[in-house]
Simulated scan of single mutants.
Amino acid sequence: MQTLEERAVAEALRDSGGEAIRLYVAACSERMVPLFIGLRAGVPGREADLDFCVWSVRDLWHTGQPLADAAERVGVLGRFPEH
């Protein structure tokens, strides 16, 4: 069941367009990436994954710059073991 808040957010994003969606994703990611980094920092072989997450969140905030490789980045994240 969808809550009133979830419905309001979904409606606002649907009506606002690409920049608002990108900022929403950036804000959500900004909250989750530190958790990922905290859990995976120091794990051998994950350094590139940590950097990738940090760069991706940074790039999401720059709405004036296109994210031409957004689909590729989603694919990379989908291959993380945590997915």
Rank of each mutant, 00 (worst) to 15 (best):
P66H: 00
C28F: 06
V43Y: 08
V54C: 12
A41E: 13
V54M: 09
E82S: 13
D59F: 07
F80T: 02
M32L: 14
A20M: 01
G64W: 02
G78T: 08
G75R: 12
R73W: 10
G42M: 11
G38R: 05
A8H: 09
A71V: 13
L35M: 13
E6K: 14
R79F: 04
D15C: 09
A26P: 02
A26E: 00
A12Y: 11
G75Y: 12
V43A: 15
Y24E: 01
E19I: 14
V43K: 14
R14M: 02
P34V: 06
E5W: 10
Q65I: 14
L67N: 01
E11R: 14
V57G: 10
R79N: 08
A10N: 10
E82N: 01
D51L: 14
G75V: 13
W55P: 11
L23V: 10
G45T: 05
W61M: 00
R79T: 14
R22K: 02
H83E: 01
R46A: 11
V54P: 12
V76Y: 10
H83G: 06
L23Y: 04
P66I: 03
Q65H: 02
S29Q: 06
P66G: 00
L39T: 05
G42L: 13
L39A: 15
R7Q: 10
V33Q: 08
G18I: 07
R73Y: 10
R46M: 07
L67H: 00
G38A: 04
P81R: 04
M1G: 08
D51G: 15
R40W: 08
G64D: 01
E72K: 06
E72M: 09
S56G: 11
W55I: 13
R40P: 00
G75Q: 10
L67D: 00
L39I: 04
V57M: 08
G18F: 07
R79D: 09
E72Y: 11
A10G: 10
P34S: 03
G38I: 02
A48I: 15
L67E: 00
D15P: 03
D59A: 14
E11S: 15
V9P: 01
M32T: 11
L35Y: 09
P44A: 13
E30P: 01
G64F: 01
A12M: 08
A20I: 03
L13S: 02
R40E: 07
E19C: 05
F52A: 13
P44M: 10
I21D: 05
S16N: 05
L50E: 09
G18H: 05
L50R: 08
A68Y: 02
L77A: 15
L35F: 13
